[in-house]
């Protein structure tokens, strides 16, 4: 595929009407991949009234055309309806590559889109390299980060790429004269076989997904009970972070499996990971060892978690964590150095 023929379509995922950061990371990757002379399109699906703001941001950050698709069936995420909407955009744009975030929605849509266009799918991409000659190489984790592979697409079929949140740079802004255009794309949802009967919304996460969180405070068996997560929650709240957990804590029933980080569970790469009462089984380390800064708090000085922690505290988490919360409440009320 020569550079000039490259056309990218970015699925600009929104949450609660707002553009997700990963959408701008995917847009950045698309601009890098099409290089000069290529075209970058974005598709906004079911954004409702807030869509205009998201569309403007995409246009300002280098999407040449922002296609806005709205239909009552798209008011909330529904894989069948959303896949059909992306299909409509694919038919209109005929892209050589389609990019999505490797989020819950992206993970459901990308394989369907890939199979529908008979394309390849490189998933959970953490780095993109391009050469002047137009070659593109994608780095992605294997075994939740115990190893990595570099892959490329073979010629002749569309590319489908899902990018891991928090790993690629955001698309830069473009000069006002190069901003893209915003256009509505006609769409009627097909009859859907799946009906949503009920949604029990999560109350605590503050809308931040574990995979996209900048700060994670995680608990292991050392928290000893569901109530033992309370001091961790207080610290997470103070730092503007979210809670995570090891498999041990989930298996023991201290918390929900949706918090589990590791080879089973979620792989995370936050700026700061604070592991409390987590010994550091290899299956847990796989899911978090690519975090930028790792703090470990554990009673056992021999715990494997210390071997990858930037800062370790040997001590009782029930003593240390509340002190940290207090210290940070004070620190964050003062300006930095």
């Amino acid at each position: 595929m020569s550079n000039c023929s490259r056309t990218a379509l970015v699925f600009a995922e929104c949450a609660d009407g707002k553009l997700r950061r990963v959408a701008l990371e995917a847009l950045g990757a698309a601009r890098q991949l099409v290089q000069d002379g290529g075209a970058v399109h974005a598709v906004l699906v079911g954004g409702g009234t807030a869509a205009s703001e998201a569309a403007a941001e995409l246009a300002a950050r280098g999407a040449g055309v922002v296609h806005v698709i709205d239909d009552p069936a798209l008011a909330q995420f529904a894989p069948e309806a959303y896949a059909a909407a992306i299909g409509a955009a694919v038919a209109a744009v005929r892209p050589s590559m389609i990019l999505l975030g490797h989020t819950a929605a992206g993970r459901e849509l990308a394989p369907r889109v890939a199979a529908a266009v008979r394309g390849g799918h490189i998933a959970d991409v953490t780095a993109v390299e391009t050469t002047d000659g137009g070659d593109a190489v994608f780095t992605r984790p294997l075994y939740a980060g115990k190893a990595f592979e570099r892959r490329r697409f073979l010629p002749g079929a569309p590319w489908v790429i899902t990018v891991r949140p928090n790993n690629l740079p955001l698309a830069d802004g473009v000069p006002p004269d190069r901003q893209g255009v915003i256009a509505a794309l006609p769409f009627t949802a097909p009859p859907l076989s799946t009906t949503v009967l009920a949604i029990a919304r999560k109350a605590d996460a503050g809308g931040v997904d574990l995979a996209e969180a900048d700060i994670i405070v995680a608990g292991g068996r050392g928290v000893r009970s569901a109530a033992g997560f309370a001091p961790l929650q207080a610290l997470a709240q103070t730092l503007g972070g979210v809670l995570g957990a090891s498999r041990g804590a989930c298996d023991a029933g201290y918390c929900d499996y949706s918090l589990q980080i590791g080879q089973t569970g979620k792989t995370v790469t936050p700026k700061l990971y604070i592991a409390c009462g987590i010994s550091g089984a290899i299956q847990h380390l796989a899911g978090m060892s690519q975090s930028r800064v790792i703090v470990a708090i554990n009673k056992d000085p021999e715990a494997p978690i210390f071997s990858i922690a930037d800062y370790g505290i040997v001590g009782d988490l029930f003593e240390i964590v509340p002190l940290l919360t207090k210290r940070f409440q004070l620190l964050l009320s003062q300006p930095g150095d």
Binding site: V137, A147, G156, A157, P301, G312
Partner: peptide, 29 residues
């Protein structure tokens, strides 16, 4: 017809252990 191929396998970037912070719990925090 495969659509993708692996070019290389890599080990994760090594991560060295940092430091342990000493002192009383207050000093550590």
């Amino acid at each position: 017809n495969p659509r993708t191929e692996r070019l290389a396998l890599l080990s994760p970037p090594p991560r060295a252990a940092g430091r342990k912070l000493a002192g009383t719990p207050e000093e550590q925090a």
